[in-house]
């Protein structure tokens, strides 16, 4: 029995389409990632699943309960951590935790084992007002508050946005451990590099689900050779590469440009190298690389939207 089942959900805000026929299922104990940039519809989907919004069409169940009819049941069974910090800034860390424990009809001690790993890290600051905590500590506290009632399904909306890289890694380690406790976790993130930490991911853009699979399978499905191209003049090179007649796609990726070519000739790399040398790029390096999630994201975006 899948913990979350989404069938064909669509939702509009006025004329803007936030979600367009999205559907997937998440089995128990899975760490499922929604990957996509701002405006992809991740938050809207989370709000629909946590019964905060109604879909325009389509249906969904969480823990076997219908999100429209059985909203009360769902609200006792899920944990939700909204995208922006949603705890009381003027209450201390400890007071926030105690408050949410009582709101969820439980005590901190009851499920302490679940949050212990996270809580010990922030415990030295338990008397500090939540508003004065650092970004990473705020997210850890928010996670504790969302976990305090041992939810069956945990929804985390961009938990690592605005958090430093070290805390981000720690945060994902924590999610791994929670998953081992049997909690189904849906997490959204705009960071493509975090996708590989999920069991399965859904790539989202402009309200559409581009593909849903394990990160590995999505990368393998890329289906054509990918090259990293570097040179001394990167920006000029990017514009040049996009005018090359055999270029299928070319995107700037940090220190190199990721390039795919139209299927064709045997020595297409050699041909490109010659072409670039004629254009005056003498220091060009072109090397084949394995595609990452971000490559797949850019690629499927071109294809589907």
């Amino acid at each position: 029995m899948n913990q979350v089942i989404i069938r064909n959900i669509s939702r509009k805000y006025g004329d803007t389409t936030a979600l367009q026929a999205v559907g997937f299922s998440v089995p128990p104990g899975e760490l499922f990632g929604l990957i996509g940039p701002d405006g992809a519809g991740k938050t809207t989907l989370f709000r629909i699943l946590t019964t905060l919004l109604l879909p325009d069409s389509g249906s969904a169940t969480v823990c076997g309960f219908d999100i429209i009819r059985d909203w009360k049941e769902i609200r006792t069974r899920v944990g939700y951590m909204p995208g922006r910090f949603s705890l009381y800034q003027d209450l201390s860390m400890e007071e926030n935790l105690l408050f949410f424990a009582t709101v969820f009809n439980t005590r901190v001690e009851e499920n302490y084992d679940l949050i212990r790993d996270i809580y010990v890290q922030i415990e030295p600051f338990r008397k500090r007002r939540a508003g004065k905590l650092s970004g990473g500590m705020k997210q850890k506290l928010a996670l504790c508050c969302a976990l305090i009632h041992r939810p069956e399904v945990l929804f985390l909306d961009e938990p690592t946005t605005g958090v430093d890289p070290v805390s981000r890694v720690e945060f994902w380690d924590m999610l791994r451990r929670l998953k081992q406790q049997g909690i189904t976790i849906l997490v959204s993130t705009p960071y493509m590099d975090e996708a590989s930490r999920c069991d399965r991911i859904a790539l989202m853009r402009s309200g559409h689900c581009l593909s849903i699979d394990t990160p590995g399978a999505i990368c393998r499905s890329f289906g054509k050779p990918l090259y990293a191209v570097r040179s001394g003049r990167m920006y000029a090179l990017l514009k040049e590469l996009r005018t090359y007649k055999e270029t299928f796609s070319c995107y700037a990726f940090g220190d190199s440009h990721h390039l795919t070519l139209n299927p064709g000739g045997a020595d297409d790399v050699g041909a490109l190298q010659t072409w670039l040398r004629d254009k005056g790029y003498t220091d060009v390096s072109i090397e084949p690389i394995a595609p990452g999630i971000e490559d797949c994201f850019m690629e499927s975006g071109d294809r589907n939207v």
Binding site: R47, T51, R75, T76, Y80, S86, F100, V103, N105
Partner: peptide, 13 residues
Amino acid sequence: ELGTMEVLLVSPL
């Protein structure tokens, strides 16, 4: 405004 209502609504309260 602070978003805490979101969290409170998604609770058994």
